[in-house]
Design a protein around this nucleic acid. Structure first.
Lengths: 187, 187
DNA sequence: TTTGTTACAGAACACTTTGTTCATTAAAAT
DNA sequence: ATTTTAATGAACAAAGTGTTCTGTAACAAA
């Protein structure tokens, strides 16, 4: 990739991140991003069609980081050790999210949170789907999956809103404690 | 209240409802609402400062309906019958929500859903707070509360997204089945 | 019925933001 | 050295927002 392109792209990401520290996504205009990134107007639109597309790209970047080990360990997944496996994975995810603390606070504090959550849930669904089929409970499988994804993403939101004052370990523990994951079939 | 005011207010609500049946909230402009309601531009702004304020008023209307019995029975609340009490209340709420099916689909299908959910959660928090303190589990009380509110609101969203193909009774049952409410102290 | 009050209609307006276009300049690749 | 690609920044059209103002109609109270 052309050095100039990468440089511009990075400065746009950086600009949005910086602005998110003090302003709500909703109230940030494209012009402000342009000024903060110190680039030309047409340059921005050469990279991203809309502000939402930029946010999407930023989220994707974050998730590629957060779920990187996730994806790598796809083959090595097993149920041995009961829930410990899942709990460890969730802890891992929370640790990675903490690396993006500043961004997350800005993103989740307003309606951009919905977009973030939407993408986040897609990744979580991928992960939880392996577990949801193992839950023995009298409810549709897709409901179980939705419940797991929904309640964990709500847990993350709660955690971020509380300035991440609990450790990833504690937070994952709380989630497991309350979730239906204890109804999993231990194979 | 002046008949004219009420008439105008109603026509604005009606217009937004109608538009929500075919368009996403995000893509509906104030001008469209004005045209659909067949009123003057300045008239709209005499009633609502912004489109979001209008949505908020619409949500409030819906919730006053949905939680009407809720509020009435505040004093008569008791834990007798274990979870049956809560399950019945949730079923009730789902029934009332079904009365607003058309609106809900339009509201929840896009970013206006976040606003709806925000207000919805406020009401749910009021309701669940009585239960959350009775849960015996090793986690902060506000986490438990957040978990109940979050997972139930996600349940509602799932239900609406699935065209409400399950009955309120079934849906409430599924939720109870998976929630931590079975860890409640039976007094 | 008359009178004072309040709401509505709708045009005009200033303002903000968006997204595109284009000629020019600079940097990168070969 | 030449060609290709990206960035600049001004100018532009379009859409939407929220306000203001004048004339008109509906309302409530005497």
């Amino acid at each position: 990739m052309d050095r100039r392109q990468k440089k511009t792209r990075d400065s746009i990401f950086k600009a949005l991140s910086t602005l998110l520290e003090t302003k709500q996504y909703r109230n940030i205009t494209v012009q402000e991003i342009i000024d903060e990134a110190n680039i030309g107007r047409s340059t921005f639109y050469a990279h991203f069609e809309t502000k939402d597309e930029l946010l999407k790209a930023l989220c994707t970047d974050i998730f590629n980081h957060v779920f990187s080990d996730e994806l790598m360990s796809e083959n090595t997944h097993d149920f041995s050790g009961g829930n410990n496996n899942l709990e460890a994975r969730l802890t891992h995810i929370l640790h990675h999210l903490k690396d993006n603390e500043k961004n997350l606070v800005g993103i989740l504090s307003c309606e951009s949170g919905e977009l973030f959550m939407k993408y986040f849930k897609e990744y979580l669904t991928e992960m939880f789907i392996r577990y949801s089929n193992e839950i023995r409970v009298n409810a549709p499988a897709d409901f179980v999956l939705n419940h797991l994804v929904g309640s964990f993403s709500e847990t993350v939101k709660w955690w971020v809103d509380n300035k991440m004052k609990y450790t990833p370990e504690e937070t994952a523990r709380y989630f497991i404690e309350l979730s239906c994951i204890n109804k999993i079939i231990d194979t």
